[in-house]
Amino acid sequence: MKEGFIITASPHIRSGVDVGSMMRAVIYALIPVVAVSIYLFRIKAVILIAVCIVTALLTEVIFQKIRHKKITLSDGSALVTGLLFALILPPGIPLGTAALGAVIAIALGKQIFGGLGYNIFNPALVGRAFLMASFPVLLTTWVKPFSLDAVTKATPLGLMKFQGAATPLLNLFLGQTAGSLGETSAVAILLGGAFLIWKGYIDWRIPAGYTFTVFLLGEFIHLINPVKFPSPFFQVLAGGLLLGAFFMATDPVTTPVTIKGRWIFGIGSGVLLIGIRIWGGLPEGVMYSILLMNMTVPLINRYTRPKPFGTRRGR
């Protein structure tokens, strides 16, 4: 019998899950969303997604080369960032602008903090916030689904805020509305989100806390002023809430590690979202609500430490 065994501390077995498989699962979960976006926006969607992903991957490689770090494209995180970034852009955005945003997402959103695991803000949202500040018009120009030329159309939230016009809920659920590439179809997002929850890769508490808070506060303001504020179902289904709730607010790196903290993160995002939708100059608030909550994560982690086993006597 050969000797020369490997010696490590226990445990000696592990689950088959690693960072790569978790990232791949996010990609799989986005398949319905991507499919709907291609169905609605055709070739524009395909090109936009391709440009964002390629730019994100290139930026990651170049940055890691400059920093003399190991190239870690195989962990899939840059791919996820690139894809998610494409899905939160208006479908008609000029490709150069989109590419610039993807560079910012990876470079300033992630690599500058030290790469995967060290960033404070969700990288895709950092990229979008940058574009929003730099090119506000391009970022709020929406195209009508199924149109190959650039026929502009306001988003459901925009229609509501600036014209007081409601979009039928069924359209919102299925997604035949104007909006960011991947945010329009609630059903596609829910399918992907359910898959990730079932796999145990995201915690249901964050999307649940986020959407229920928006629903409850939406109901509250709707009761106060039904003319100005639409029904809570509209608040939940219109705009990027669901995409944000299932795919951005659940980013492991930028959300709390404690269970109580995840509730706080979800509920806090919901409160901020409604605040922005009521008082903000923009119709939408998902991006800023999540980015603002990202900042509070270290604080949340610190004050929501679980009580260790044995300190909960008499329960």
Binding site: I13, R14, D18, L116, G117, P252
Partner: peptide, 29 residues
């Protein structure tokens, strides 16, 4: 083939360790 020997990757703070700790501790921290 049964032993996994893999280079350590950066912690992505997914908190899977927190969820499985039977003692209610925070392994990631």
């Amino acid at each position: 083939k049964e032993i996994s020997f893999h280079e350590e990757l950066p912690c992505i703070r997914c908190a899977r360790c927190v969820d499985v700790c039977p003692m209610g501790l925070l392994p990631t921290e």
